[in-house]
Design a protein around this nucleic acid. Structure first.
Lengths: 206, 206
DNA sequence: CTAGACTTCAAACGTTTGTTTGAATCGTGG
DNA sequence: CCACGATTCAAACAAACGTTTGAAGTCTAG
């Protein structure tokens, strides 16, 4: 359990909600569990966020605003160069997520929350994420298209879809590979990102 | 909504539960919603299954017993041949899932339920699935190891982990690619499987 | 120091949850 | 045709849910 006692009520709620959403899902994590973990009053959620749904969206906003910016920054940097590889492009997408997941304050937990959102097939959440952060994926898709001109559009979309799946699943640590005993969390995640780029680049080029 | 009126109470509950678990998740789908959709009495769940948790496990058992058998059958067939490719092996794993998802009675829905299970990180569900069906993955992993002898064990496990992620995500139809208007569900899913095998084989070989 | 806004708090609201109960109904073998 | 086990049913249980309330407490600008 993270110790957020030095933070404001708002931040403590967001941190506790993030952890419980990752562990139990959005529906199963109750506001009573969240406020107990954050050591704040139950009514604080509705005071600071209005509703549970708004709290969920705020959990995403807090991380995704920065993550999206960093990804687009890296993409913009690559646009200056004229010898961009597939690996560079994947790196621009993955490294910001890796850095977030290495953040001292529960970034890795958030990647699990993000993966949960993909499982919520018809919910408002998908709409919220697509409306607010869909442009990032669109920009990257365009960059991939320029880098893989031999692929038909439809063919490219299939492969990108599969790639996003692999990325989502892996960054959420849903897999069976456990961190080895002597290995730091950081080293484990960096290896994961390295394998992810290697694997996905090959799949896209195939 | 499927019409299961010709089936027994038990089967109707399993069908309705499968659909609602896929759509809303295990916690958010209530027994009242399930029994209403199945048009049976609320108490029928506890009469036939004992508890909600047992119902959840039974939803998996109903599909996974057969799916696991089919996968291992295909794997056994490949063992007879002496010119097995990576694509053959992936096909042995993917095609049974594809056939299940093309089943008349909601097989495609089940793949979404299965993907939900991966998001349940610490729950009993992961243990239940690993204890009862983990041997399938183990057998396939051994076959992949024989086919990719140049890869170190650890390296292979990384790639298989990523491949399982791509498979899970894609077969659950979590991605953004929608079925084209003129295209049948069957054709869409067959294309998906084809791309999946192609992409994953390249990633494993890379 | 006080007025006024901001924040926290315990308590309660009406719903909904999974589960249990005992009676009613069904279906079949003797 | 009756009896008995299997199934279905409406009703109720305590517990947990998200949300609202109004008072108590905290903090800061004037």
């Amino acid at each position: 359990m993270r110790d957020n006692s030095q933070f404001s009520t708002r931040q403590r709620i967001l941190g506790a909600a993030e952890e419980l959403f990752a562990e139990r899902g959005f529906a199963a994590a109750s506001l009573r569990q969240v406020t107990a973990a954050a050591r704040v009053n139950l009514a604080a959620v509705n005071y600071h966020f209005g509703s549970k749904n708004n709290l969920i969206e705020e959990v995403f906003r807090r991380r995704l605003d920065e993550l999206s910016d960093r990804r687009l920054e890296r993409l913009a940097e690559l646009a200056k160069s004229d010898s961009v590889t597939l690996e560079d492009l994947l790196d621009a997408f993955i490294t910001p997520a890796l850095e977030l997941s290495l953040d001292r304050e529960g970034g890795s937990v958030f990647m699990r929350v993000l993966a949960r959102a993909f499982a919520e097939h018809n919910s408002n959440l998908r709409t919220f994420l697509s409306d607010n952060y869909g442009y990032v994926l669109k920009d990257f898709a365009a960059a991939f298209a320029r880098l893989l001109p031999q692929l038909e559009k439809q063919e490219l979309y299939w492969r990108l879809d599969i790639a996003v799946g692999a990325l989502t699943y892996a960054m959420a640590d849903f897999g069976m590979i456990k961190r080895r005993s002597g290995e730091s969390e950081r080293a484990h995640r960096e290896q994961m990102a390295r394998h992810l780029i290697h694997f996905t680049a090959a799949g896209l080029r195939a």
